[in-house]
Design a protein around this nucleic acid. Sequence first.
DNA 1: CCGTTCACG
DNA 2: ACGTACGTGAACGGG
Length: 499
Amino acid sequence: MNPIEDTMLISYTLDAGINRHNMNALSEIHLGHKTITFKELVGSGKNKLNFSDIELAKATEYAAEDADVTLRLYENLKERMNEEKLNKIYEYFEKPMVKLLAKLEFNGIKVDVNYLKKLSAQFEKKLKKIEKDIFTVAGKEFNIGSPKQLGEIIYNELKIAKLKKTRKGSLATNASVLENLALTGHKFPNLILEWRQVSKLKNTYTDALQDHISSKTKRVHTSFLLAATNTGRLASSDPNLQNIPIKSEDGREIRKAFVADKGNVLISADYNQIEMRILADIADVKELKKAFKNNEDIHSLTASQVFNVPIDKVNEDLRRKAKAINFGIIYGITQYGLAKQIAVSNQEALDFINAYFKKFPEIKDYMNTTIKFCRTRGFVNNIFGRRIHLRGINDKNFSVRSFQERAAINAPIQGSAADIIRLAMIKLDQIIETDKKFKTKMLLQIHDELIFECSQNDKDYVKKVIKEAMISVSISDYHMFSIPLNVSINSGLNWGEAH
DNA sequence: CCGTTCACG
DNA sequence: ACGTACGTGAACGGG
């Protein structure tokens, strides 16, 4: 029995994709009452007061309104939730997360501050060096971090290629544009790309992370947001620990700064290709389901089907392309998107997509059915019955409508994966609270990955239990999976090593 | 405060 | 005829 209720989470369960879920917004929408905001109460800028300095009568009015509005919202939303039969989503997927995430936030994760400082200095040196080269090539000094100034140099001074503009009409200098410019043989674009990467790592990670270390615990404590995404995923902020680098060489170094306490290890447990598995399940894709049951390499299989070559003749390049197609499918593929991603012509991309749908016709059916359903109902469901609303699905603007259609295809897949890992977290939290032999702390969730910390001595048992729990959520009361789940699990003294 | 860019799944 | 692959948050520049 969990007696705590939360209007924000009820609203999220009912209206994800329609509203924001904070009390002020909900009050205006459902009660037609504009609340006193905290900002109005305490002021802003240099006149900003502390809550303790607010006149008692005013503080009372604010606090009483808060309580009144919350109760009225609860009565209002609870009714709708029961009528629409969404109470199970709220009870089983939302409510248990509140206390659980509080524990994750409270636990925090240790970072090696000296190591971060060393990395910062290293990046700084690298930046200075690249900066010098950039100014030499440009023939003058400018703010490399200003896309406006950079665009001027690229298109007006160096005249590397003809103008590319962003949606809003400014000069485009993003990575994909620069990569194309690099093909002209000019060295400038690659210098910028390198500078961008290193400055990103330094500013956003090695420098900023140090400011987030708690002086009390010497650890970093993120905030997990439970009602921020449309799909059921969590989000993380202050700092965001769900986008710590891993893809580049320099980036991976940053993961090593996340360390286990003395005598402990970090454990990382990843669902393998969970979204492709869910696609195979919801779209009932015979070939894919068979492949997952037989533990086959799914991207090689795709390559062999789409490019019509025997599976043992699939080379690295074909596999890479097939992998991009599989990702694209989950995002609601377009020929333009795929063409850009794997650097082929629009026609070739279209041919690949057509070949793909011919081999996996159930996927095309799933897409059509999902969009049709969404057009009439205004929302889609994931495998557990979570609802995601797509407000613009019938918009008369082609671009808006297409965007919503792709989101409608993606939402049940991404959202089912999000709810599967929620179940795993809830299950593991119960084990943590009840199994005296299972001594471990849950630290982070990164969409398809969980990070734990436990004693060196316990790690073998802990890993076994985690893996078993994550894999077995599939045979729960909520949904019978037609495909097995798989989990990779590793441990080490730091996050880089545990991955 | 918005737009651009880029880090992640 | 659209100029997009889905979902996020943070840093920075510039009005």
